[in-house]
Write a protein that binds this DNA or RNA. Structure first.
Length: 427
RNA sequence: GUGGGUGUAGCUCAGCCCGGUUAGAGCACUUGGUUGUGGCCCAAGAGGUCGCCGGUUCAAAUCCGGUCAUCCACCCCA
């Protein structure tokens, strides 16, 4: 039996790894412009970090976490998302004492035991940001502005939509939920089977259903969550909307948005696309004013979001969005003929690499033709050829692979080549 | 957890319905096309337990059953 990777896990190789890192880098730089600094936290935490953080009843905690007992008898879980761990670290290091506002971002792999499908893996990368210490709507607005700038710099702003909503405080939400339940129960028969179950599990989710009859039914609801929000929550939402208008950030108020995590209060938002099938969210977040307190820290308001890097990659691919890649250094291939030349080639390669150049050479004796083919295939800009003739004359042949131009040059010139090793000057 | 699709060379796939000699193609790889020069072209070569197990049959990649893997969709989510 061959050993294979775990179901739902992916190996990633060259051009893709580069694309992912470049997306990550772009986003990271935007975050830093907003004054966020990176936090690196463990992939493994005590399970209660997530059960109290995300809520016992959430799907993530109930059935999607990789949880196991350590030899020491502790129950631990692989992180299914970033916020809970960042909050734990925020509390553990008493960051609230160091500064009234703390802005942190993280990037890394998350683990969820879900059924994999397009745009959904059991291990995926998220980059996310959390702002602690402000309950002002301007903080929400800044977080959203940062997300928007990130997708703009990624070239994706045309392909995504920013949807937001307020789900108020738990007590307000409960009232709304109750009213919703009452309304929906009366029309139970026109709901899809799923939604009939949701009535007992999570009535808010019915709003999210895509079934035609459910959409029709829910769009006829004569009241909205805003009717149940406190003056403060409504004011918060209004102020946020106003700020987004002023920053000209396109957005859509969508009263149907509900989030899967318990910790959100007031603002929730999603960055969605219609180009990834049912995996339509590429980033999501919101405000969570109660979480720090709930996890044992001082009452601290906070807002944040996370972005799925693989989904961003998929979206870039599907929309044919070109990103200018950082551009690799030009490659030089050292080609050798004969044992003596082979060793010489190894030394020249080493020398040029110390000078900062990108250099390839063949380890074994191969024909000139095959080495040239390889140089061509790997996209070398120049070839340095060391054969018996060159060795005897203490020279090397330098070939420009694009033009085919070739010249014989004394070896000392190679040694005297400056830091950048500009071969153009030699030709 | 539920439903559907697909498993044949490193990759993308044909062949399967209508069982039958050494299981194919393209790409990639290796070597060569007269002495030490790449790209195009040409030739040769290497590479496969036809996912696995069992059944039917004189004979199975092909038919049947099971199993595993993977993908897609639902659920949920980034």
């Amino acid at each position: 039996m061959k050993i294979t990777r775990l179901h739902g896990f992916k190996d990633m190789f060259h051009p893709e790894t580069q694309r992912l890192r470049s997306v990550e880098d772009t986003v990271r730089k935007v975050f830093e412009r907003f004054g966020f600094s990176e936090v690196i936290i463990p992939v493994l935490e005590l399970s209660e970090t997530y059960s109290t953080g995300l809520g016992d009843t959430t799907d993530i905690v109930q059935k999607e976490m990789y949880t196991f007992e350590t030899k020491g008898g502790e129950w631990v879980s692989m992180r299914p998302e970033g916020t809970a761990g960042v909050v734990r670290a925020y509390i553990e290091h008493s960051l609230h004492r160091k500064s009234p506002v703390t802005k942190l971002y993280y990037s890394g792999e998350m683990f969820r035991h879900e059924k994999p499908q397009e745009g959904r893996q059991r291990c995926f990368n998220q980059i996310g940001a959390e702002l602690f210490g402000s309950r002002d709507p301007l903080a929400d607005s800044e977080i959203i502005a940062m997300l928007w700038l990130a997708v703009t710099e990624l070239g994706l702003s045309e392909h995504v939509e920013l949807e937001l909503n307020s789900i108020g405080k738990p007590a307000e939400r409960e009232l709304y939920k109750k009213a919703l339940l009452e309304f929906l129960s009366q029309k139970k028969d026109s709901l899809c089977e799923n939604c009939r179950n949701r009535l007992t599990t999570n009535p808010l989710r019915v709003l999210d259903c895509k079934t035609d009859t459910c959409v029709e039914l829910t769009s006829g609801i004569p009241f909205s969550i805003r009717d149940y929000l406190s003056e403060q929550s409504n004011g918060h939402l209004d102020a946020l909307l106003r700020s987004l208008e002023e920053k000209s950030i396109p957005h859509r108020l969508n009263p149907r948005i509900v989030r899967g995590l318990d910790y959100y209060t007031d603002t929730v938002f999603e960055l969605t696309t219609d180009k990834l099938g049912s995996q339509n969210a590429v980033a999501a977040g919101g405000r969570y004013d109660l979480l720090v307190g709930r996890m044992g820290g001082p009452e601290t308001p906070a807002v944040g979001f996370a972005m799925g890097l693989e989904r961003i990659l998929l979206l870039l691919e599907k929309t044919g969005t070109r990103r200018n890649s950082p551009g690799k250094k030009q490659l030089v291939c050292i080609i050798h003929i004969g044992d003596e030349a082979r060793e010489k080639a190894a030394n020249i390669a080493d020398d040029l690499r110390r000078k900062g150049m990108r250099v390839e050479t063949e380890y074994e004796n191969k024909s000139l033709k095959s080495q040239m083919r390889k140089a061509n295939r790997t996209g070398a800009a120049y070839s340095v050829i060391i054969g018996e003739d060159e060795l005897r004359g203490k020279v090397f042949s330098l070939r420009n692979m694009k033009t085919g131009e070739e010249k014989t040059i004394p070896l000392e010139k190679l040694a005297a080549l400056g830091g950048h090793g500009d071969f153009r000057k030699l030709l």
